[in-house]
């Protein structure tokens, strides 16, 4: 495993941890949703990096990332809608 790959892996991990920190520190729903997306990006970064760990690209991981992105987008949309609704309720 090359150094640059390790660098990518490490950034993925750092992104995940950053998202975790954001989720833990914030109470505002929008910020928490963004933090979750940052966590997600970290995981996806790790996935695409791992796909390059052998000479040929691993298609399985790419497929997984695509699936993961679809899930993340729909979940985020739903979460945003809920956040808006609950804000309106408060007002």
């Amino acid at each position: 495993m090359t150094l640059s790959l390790q660098l990518f892996l490490a950034s993925g991990g750092i992104l995940w941890l950053t998202g975790l920190y954001g989720l833990w520190r914030n109470s505002d729903p929008i910020r928490r949703i963004i933090s979750l997306n940052i966590m997600g990006s970290g995981v996806f970064l790790v996935m695409v990096t791992l796909a390059r760990r052998e000479t040929s690209t691993d298609p399985v991981l790419h497929a997984l990332v695509v699936t993961g992105l679809v899930v993340a987008v729909s979940a985020t949309a739903f979460a945003l809608r809920l956040a808006v609704a609950s804000q309106q309720e408060k007002r």
Partner: peptide, 19 residues
């Protein structure tokens, strides 16, 4: 309406757990 807040918390925790 009264369940929205609980639902949102549930969703965020569930997404976090998934990640």
């Amino acid at each position: 309406h009264k369940a929205l807040r609980a639902a949102l918390d549930y969703l965020l925790l569930s997404l976090f757990a998934s990640l």
